[in-house]
Computed example of a mutant assay.
Amino acid sequence: MASRKKRGKKQLDFRNVQLADALQTQDMAAVAFALRHGPTVVPLMRPGARDDPRDSGEVWTYRDPESGEIALLLFSDAVHKPEMLPSSVGLHSAAWLRAFLGAHGDEITTVFFDIAGPHPMQAAPADLIAALDA
């Protein structure tokens, strides 16, 4: 039996095709453009409250057990998120990412995009902020 979509409910697409294409070229300017014009998939420790648009959830970050360095992992598509990460994801805008990096950029040492592939990329928070501000 074929599954049916509920009428009236829009299915969220947890991906940014432009970001996936930009990661393929490894071009920071293209990545920044894609981030400014589409959502970013962010793993969440705790999803946001559905009835409170101000609650975007609690972002999951990776802390290296040996060095203590913190990395922010972002994804172009929820299917690229490794299964070992929290199961919840959020879709966040460029404005959210800019504000998050502005608030936590001193603690975060690196930002990884699609860390498990197919086209992983790494950037320093300051470089990403500069690219988003350009």
Rank of each mutant, 00 (worst) to 15 (best):
E66L: 12
E83C: 04
L91H: 10
L101R: 13
R63Y: 07
L132K: 10
A131I: 01
M84F: 13
T61W: 03
H119C: 05
L97N: 02
V79K: 10
H119E: 05
G105M: 01
I115T: 10
K81V: 14
D127W: 04
K81Y: 08
M84L: 11
A103Y: 13
T110W: 12
D77K: 04
G117I: 06
S87M: 14
G102W: 08
S56D: 13
A131V: 02
A99P: 00
G57Q: 10
H119Q: 02
A116R: 08
H104Y: 10
P53H: 03
Q122L: 12
P86I: 07
L101V: 05
G105D: 02
G90P: 00
A94N: 00
S87L: 10
V89D: 06
T109C: 05
G102M: 02
K81D: 11
E83H: 07
H80I: 01
D114Y: 00
V111N: 10
K81R: 14
M84C: 08
A78V: 15
H119T: 11
V79D: 12
L132R: 00
A95L: 11
V59L: 03
M121G: 05
P118R: 12
D55C: 02
M121F: 12
H119Y: 14
L73P: 01
D55E: 01
S76E: 03
A99K: 15
P118S: 09
A95P: 02
A123K: 04
L73S: 04
E58W: 06
D52E: 08
P118H: 06
T109S: 13
G105W: 01
F112V: 00
F100P: 10
R54F: 10
L132P: 13
A103T: 10
A94C: 01
A126I: 00
A94D: 00
Q122R: 13
A99I: 00
E66I: 09
P82W: 02
P82C: 01
P86E: 01
Y62S: 14
L128M: 15
W96Y: 15
R98F: 08
L132A: 06
R98N: 14
L101P: 10
G57W: 05
P82T: 00
K81Q: 14
D77W: 07
H92Q: 15
D106K: 13
Y62D: 14
P125I: 12
G117D: 03
D114F: 04
W60H: 02
S76C: 06
S93R: 05
L74H: 07
D64R: 07
M84Y: 13
G90Y: 00
S56E: 12
A126K: 04
S87P: 05
L132W: 06
D64G: 06
A103D: 14
I70K: 07
A126T: 09
E66F: 06
E69S: 15
S56Q: 12
M121I: 01
T109K: 13
H92R: 15
A123N: 02
A131Q: 04
V111H: 12
S67D: 09
P65T: 04
H92K: 15
E66V: 13
V89S: 15
A78N: 14
I108H: 01
F100H: 10
T109Y: 03
S93C: 04
P120V: 00
F112E: 03
S76A: 10
T109Q: 15
G117C: 02
K81H: 06
A95K: 14
A71Y: 04
I115N: 08
G57H: 07
G102H: 09
S93I: 02
